[in-house]
Nucleic acid binder design. Sequence first.
DNA 1: AGATGGATTTTC
DNA 2: AAAATCCATCTC
Length: 201
Amino acid sequence: MHDQSPNCKLEHEFYRRPTLEVAESLLGKVLVRRLNGRKLAGKIVETEAYIGQEDLACHASRGKTARTSIMFEPGGRAYVYMIYGFYFCLNVVTETEGYPAAVLIRAIEPLSHTSVMRELRKGPRRDNDIGSGPGKLCMAMAIDKALNGEDLTGNTLWIEDRKFDVGKIKKTARIGIDYAGEYRNKPWRFYLHGNAHVSKL
DNA sequence: AGATGGATTTTC
DNA sequence: AAAATCCATCTC
């Protein structure tokens, strides 16, 4: 579908598509974070789509603000925000300029430098506790507000296609958005069936 | 296994 | 005041 560079890094065109397509096709792709010369990597196993101003769960539903302005940019950049005062969440911005939408990366399965990521998560844990949640994976990959707005075709944070077989994809309502009225039940969460690193089954 | 509450900062 | 969360600490 796309002609990829040798390292299979996803280009801007991948992100500048309908958000539901991006959210589903990100499953099985590999999130890579360059940190101190190492490339921390994890397979994306869970995502959620946040789509436009009508979507009451979307941060941009109340218009363009300092926080949400990045969501109005063309797809292919990172949207990182702090949640509950403790954790960060990583999104990839999608669609075209002026249309606010993004995909939340909710869980990864560690693929390389697992021990480094375990240390960043502070303390000995099972492998499936390292990236099994949006806050956890940001901790494991040292992703914080400094990476908000980062171009995903640069050499700090990007996503690769390594042609993993994704198996069966499950779709459910999104997590933690009970306030979103009719949008609460939209099946806009995607995850790999049976994968141990999904945040919830 | 499931429910509850606390930590803490950004946002509007 | 509430939030796209996580974890410790209860209870059954």
